[in-house]
Write a protein that binds this DNA or RNA. Structure first.
Length: 305
DNA sequence: AAACCGATCAACCGCGACAAT
DNA sequence: CATTGTCGCGGTTGATCGGTT
């Protein structure tokens, strides 16, 4: 497979495009079409490589490009398509008329991805991240009920909670119980791992990518096989809230909305194509985080009863 | 007013796919 | 079949801007 260096020729300009360059490129393509990108700059009188011209055209100058913020429907579409297609931005872009793959990719990385992370959803798998949920509550629950823990109950939830997790939780909590500072009512306990790495339960504002991607929990804490994201329910005519609809794979058919109090329609929302405001996004995010925590606590509380 | 910082997004880079030779 | 040339994709970078200290 041969590969030719594109822009390493001397004399070719790089960096931001000037209005004059834009005009030259636009004018040329409107009259002649782009044809061969490699020859285009020379023919159009541009000191650019063909690759740069193609990028400028496809991402900026194309007449059918839609400008402005992404609508609610567009964002929903992106999330849903990403859950199926992954980082296939060009494939996603073909289903969003007027949006470029670059624009969608940027929007994903700067907005959607961060919001999903803050909501405790893995933006890659679209599954809830157990390590971001209120693990301390799970562990406290383990501690309190460990003496009366019903083995049969645990076995019953085996598809939901990895037994290794339960062992770890019990182990952690029994060691933490020995700590004088431990208080069951403490809303923000610190978990001390054997290798002295501290896990401080984060508040929403403390989330960051490093924290999220770090080696926080062992690989046994894997919910991906047990949960799947069915979709994101938009609900609330005024607040335009967003919440993921989760369900255990096993119980999917029995109880579809196991974790969501939302409507069953994944697209029920304001009929107006409304753009987000930052305030609305915060509200939506906060609300969804609460939903996730609340619902999963219920699941685990039930499991340990 | 200035320095700093984080968010945003246009543009670049490297690579794989594929058609042409 | 091997090589070459081109295109397009996805990841990354860096300039810019607005907010905060």
């Amino acid at each position: 497979m041969g590969r030719t260096p594109c822009c390493d020729s001397t004399g070719l300009k790089k960096g931001p495009w000037t209005p004059e360059e834009d005009h030259k490129l636009l004018d040329y393509i409107q009259k002649n079409g782009h044809g061969n990108w490699r020859n285009l700059p020379k023919n159009a009188g541009l000191q650019r490589c063909g690759k740069s011209c193609r990028l400028r055209w496809t991402n900026y100058l194309r007449p059918d490009i839609k400008r402005g913020r992404f609508s609610f429907e567009e964002e929903e579409t992106i999330i849903q398509l990403h859950s199926v297609l992954g980082n296939k931005w060009s494939a996603i872009a073909t289903r969003l008329p007027g949006r470029t793959d670059n624009e969608i990719k940027n929007y994903w990385n700067t907005h959607i991805r961060k919001r999903l992370l803050r909501m405790g959803i893995d933006p890659v798998t679209h599954s809830p991240r157990l390590d971001l949920l209120d693990l301390s509550a799970i562990l406290r629950s383990t501690l309190y009920s460990s003496s009366q823990m019903k083995v049969s109950s645990l076995l019953g939830i085996q598809p939901l909670v990895n037994p290794e997790l339960l062992k770890l939780a019990a182990s952690l909590m029994s060691s933490e119980r020995r700590s004088p500072s431990f208080s069951p009512q403490n809303s923000s306990p610190t978990i001390q791992f054997p290798h002295e790495q501290q896990l401080v339960e984060p508040t929403g504002s403390e989330f960051n990518d490093e924290w999220l991607s770090g080696p926080i929990l062992p690989s046994c804490l894997n919910l991906d096989a047990n949960f799947e994201l069915l979709g994101y329910d938009y609900h609330g005519l005024d607040q335009q809230e967003l919440a993921p609809t989760l369900c255990s794979v096993e119980g999917k058919n029995k109880n579809k909305n196991l974790c969501s109090p939302c409507s069953s329609s994944p697209t029920q929302m304001n009929s107006n194509s409304t753009n987000f405001t930052s305030a609305a996004e915060d509200e939506k995010e906060s609300y969804c985080s609460q939903i996730l925590n609340f619902e999963l606590h219920d699941i685990f509380d039930e499991a340990f009863m």
